[in-house]
Design a protein around this nucleic acid. Structure first.
Lengths: 101, 101
DNA sequence: TTGACATATAGATATATCTATATATAATAC
DNA sequence: GTATTATATATAGATATATCTATATGTCAA
């Protein structure tokens, strides 16, 4: 029996917080939304689509991969990123349903 | 017509990211979950329920109030906090549905 | 092996977090 | 009523973490 907070285990709280923190940045939220909508993309496609500095995109992508939110594969000179954590897709859907302005 | 990113306006992305960042910390996620479950609580009830330092709870509560996630009212010596941003409740529900471990 | 294109990393600056301390409010004693 | 104590909350400042700008590295084609 795991220790519990209210409804989630301490471990689930930690993991959920890490995931939410990952998408709790405007650039990262836009990246995740793009990948959710259009599927995997290479770094160039991502920073061009969003009007970002290449280095900024690369760092945010690396961060999200490190945290398990994204996965990547290299194909020659290109590195393609995609959503890895299905919970992210769920939260994005929730945002779309409830955070439209 | 607002400028758009993919599905959300730039402004909606900003606001959503701010809200997600707020709950993207284990302590703040636990606080929000507690308030979502049990309704408004004063600072003492919150830090005792979660085993936090008083100052830590106070600072996280202030931060979330500043960002519009929580609201507060003072009753004598006590300050009661409650969830203000309904989107937070939606995301918490989503976490409960999909992030159980 | 040089040049062009694609991605990653170092280091400076900004932001968040925690520990230690202070302030505010009210009850009690005098 | 005023001083004193207890209780509840907030803030300052040190430390840790995240972010961006500038620069470097990696990969392949000619």
């Amino acid at each position: 029996m795991m220790p519990r907070t209210e409804n989630l285990t301490v471990e689930a709280i930690q993991q959920a917080a890490t995931m939410l923190k990952c998408i709790g940045h405007p650039v990262r939220l836009q990246i995740v939304e793009l990948l959710d909508r259009d599927g995997e993309q290479n770094v160039t496609a991502i920073y061009e689509a969003l009007g970002l500095e290449q280095a900024v995109a690369s760092q945010h992508l690396n961060l999200m991969r490190d945290k398990g939110v994204l996965a990547s594969r290299r194909d020659g000179v290109n590195v393609f990123y995609r959503i890895q954590d299905a919970r992210v897709t769920r939260v994005i859907d929730c945002i779309h349903d409830h955070c439209q302005m």
